[in-house]
Every structure is written in structure tokens, then in C-alpha cells.
């Protein structure tokens, strides 16, 4: 095994216990003090019953939802950066998140009269209308990905630069339409929308995780087949094609992966920034550019960081629940700027 591969494998091995540790801490910490032993000892009538309910029905799904979302966003970011050979590429940049945001805003403002979308309350998402928001968000992201593909494909050839530019335009357009909806919204819808744009896992349930899983399974299956093609694409489209990789198919699969990863997670948890940009960078700093390590590393680190951010969101203003999007942005911005300046320094000094 080469030096770079050994370092990558060691890093992956180190991330796994980190994820388990963060998960355990996150399950333990919160407004209600609980102990993990309650999972095994809390019977129906025992003293630990309430703690067991908190763990299995509230905190458990929340932690798992945060982990899955972090993994999905980070992998989607890593795939976008590999596809565009651009370190700033992010699912948000190409309009997939904006499509989900627009569809979600439509449901909240126009379709969800009396819709209980109050992030933070636990009695939501059982009624039919509550499902309509994530379903609409998912469809919005898929519609955005499909539109982008149509805009950027001519004669069977998809231009990644057109995807990027059309994605920026689509984001701006979807943002404007969302703005109109916000302008028309009543106070309740406005509050719901505002909370949605800041992201939260307070509404996580096992049912929602069940809904998320098929999309993430498809995304995981695509990811497994994209590691070597994305490595080849770092050499440029021409060289990847000459080496025998079906470049157009890779682009289609990458867009499908982003839609499957980002659409449902954004729809369920709201807009959560920086994970998609920062995590792949952090992983690359250790593993190098090889996507065989970058993609699984991003999944593990993205999951660990978002669980940690959600834990912070729960505890920094207890008993209030700070939107997790704020935490990731507040922590992510300085890290991102540090990464940029470090990369610039390295280029100047090289």
C-alpha cells in the first residue's frame, strides 16, 4: 500500500470512532439529562422509562437524521467539486437546494394553510399536510436538477460550465420567486419559512428517516461507482474520455446523486450551509485528492460534524433550540476562510 493510501485508510479508521463518540455524546446531552443505559434498562414502568422515550423517540431519530444529512451534503459537495474541478462547487451553487427551497416555500405559503411546520414542536409531521412539505421539496430539487440537465445538454454532450452558470442563474431565479412568496406570506408562514431557511433537526422522526433512506441508498450506490471516474475527471474531460470513462454518463449520475442526496435532506431539515463545501476540503487536506478516500471520508466527517453542530445547537441556549444552520454557518465561515487563505498561501509559496 502506498504512503498516500495508508494515510487515507488510517484517516477513515480514525473517523469511525470519532463518529461513534460524537453520536454517544449527542445522545447524552440535551435539555433533559438522560443516560444511554436507559436504552436497555428503561422498561415500561421503571424510573428510566421517560429517559428511554427521550432517547428512542426524540434524540435518537434527531441524531441519525443529522448524521445522514451531514453525510449526504458532504458527499454531494465532494462529488460536485470533483465534477467541476472547482473547490467552491457546492450543491447550493447549482440550484438544487434553491429548487427545494422554492417548492418548500410554495407548500408553506400557498399549499399549507394551517400547516404545522413549527420547527421545534414535536407533534408535527403525522398529518398528511406535513408530508407535503418534504415531498414538495424533494420534487423541487429533482425538477431543478432536470432543468439544469436540459439547459446544459446539447447533442448528448453536457457542459459542466453551463451547469455551473445555469445553476447560478436558476438559484437567483428561484430565490426571486421565493422572495415573492415571502412577500405574500402571512405571519405564520413567514415564521415557518424563516425557520426552514435556518435548518433544524427538531422535526426528525423514524418515519421521516424511513422516507429519506431510499433516496440515500440510491445516492450511496451511485457514490460507490463514482470514485475512480471522479479521479479520472480531475485530469480533464478529454483525458478521462480517452482513458475509457463514459464521461457523459458520469455527469448524469453525479447530478442524480446530488438530487437524491440534497433534495430530500434539505426538504426535511431545511437549508444547512457549509457542510458541502468545507467537509470535502478538510478531508482532502489529509487524504489527498483520491476520491476512494475523499467520498467515504466526507460521509463520515460530514455526519460527525453535523451531529456535533446539532448538539451545540441544542445546548448553547438551553432549553431553546438554535437552528443548526446558524451553527454551521458561524463555525463554517472562519474554517472556510482559513482554508482559502491557506490554499492561497500554498500557491504563492509554491
Amino acid at each position: 500500500m502506498t504512503l498516500a493510501k495508508r494515510r487515507g485508510a488510517l484517516f477513515l479508521c480514525a473517523l469511525l470512532p470519532l463518529l461513534l463518540l460524537v453520536t454517544a455524546v449527542s445522545l447524552n446531552v440535551g435539555a433533559t439529562g438522560v443516560h444511554l443505559m436507559a436504552l436497555w434498562q428503561g422498561d415500561a414502568h421503571g424510573s428510566l422509562y421517560a429517559e428511554r422515550v427521550v432517547l428512542t423517540q426524540i434524540r435518537g431519530p434527531r441524531v441519525i437524521m443529522a448524521g445522514l444529512t451531514g453525510a449526504a451534503l458532504a458527499v454531494a459537495g465532494a462529488v460536485m467539486q470533483g465534477l467541476f474541478r472547482n473547490p467552491l462547487a457546492d450543491p447550493g451553487l447549482i440550484g438544487v437546494s434553491s429548487g427545494a427551497a422554492l417548492a418548500t416555500a410554495c407548500m408553506i405559503v400557498l399549499g399549507g394553510a394551517g400547516l404545522d411546520m413549527a420547527v421545534g414542536s414535536m407533534h408535527v409531521f403525522i398529518t398528511g399536510t406535513a408530508w407535503s412539505v418534504p415531498v414538495a421539496g424533494t420534487m423541487g430539487s429533482f425538477a431543478a436538477a432536470w432543468l439544469l440537465y436540459q439547459f446544459s445538454t446539447r447533442g448528448g454532450v453536457t457542459s459542466v460550465s453551463v451547469i455551473l452558470l445555469a445553476g447560478v442563474a436558476l438559484s437567483a431565479f428561484a430565490g426571486a420567486l421565493t422572495g415573492i412568496l415571502i412577500f405574500c406570506a402571512n405571519d405564520t408562514a413567514l415564521r415557518d419559512l424563516t425557520f426552514w431557511t435556518m435548518g433544524s433537526f427538531a422535526g426528525a422522526t423514524w418515519l421521516r428517516i424511513g422516507m429519506l433512506c431510499p433516496f440515500l441508498l440510491v445516492a450511496g450506490w451511485i457514490t460507490a461507482g463514482l470514485t475512480m471516474p471522479l479521479n479520472a475527471l480531475l485530469l480533464g474531460e478529454s483525458d478521462a474520455r480517452l482513458m475509457g470513462y463514459p464521461v457523459e454518463r458520469i455527469k448524469r449520475l453525479a447530478m442524480l446523486l446530488v438530487a437524491c442526496s440534497v433534495g430530500p435532506t434539505v426538504s426535511f431539515a431545511g437549508a444547512i450551509g457549509f457542510i458541502g463545501v468545507v467537509v470535502p476540503h478538510l478531508v482532502r487536506l489529509v487524504t489527498g485528492p483520491d476520491h476512494r478516500f475523499v467520498l467515504p471520508g466526507s460521509a463520515l466527517l460530514g455526519a460527525a460534524l453535523l451531529i456535533a453542530a446539532d448538539t451545540l445547537a441544542r445546548v448553547i441556549a438551553m432549553p431553546a433550540d438554535v437552528p443548526v444552520g446558524i451553527v454551521t454557518a458561524v463555525l463554517g465561515t472562519p474554517v472556510f476562510v482559513w482554508l482559502l487563505t491557506r490554499a492561497h498561501e500554498r500557491e504563492v509559496l509554491a
Partner: peptide, 13 residues
């Protein structure tokens, strides 16, 4: 085929 230049900027060994 060896092309004239490669846009590779990744740090592969």
C-alpha cells in the same frame, strides 16, 4: 493518447 496539456491540479502521487 497523450494530449498537449492536462488541466490536472490535484496532488496525486
Amino acid at each position: 493518447m497523450l494530449t498537449q496539456d492536462s488541466p490536472l491540479r490535484a496532488r496525486f502521487t
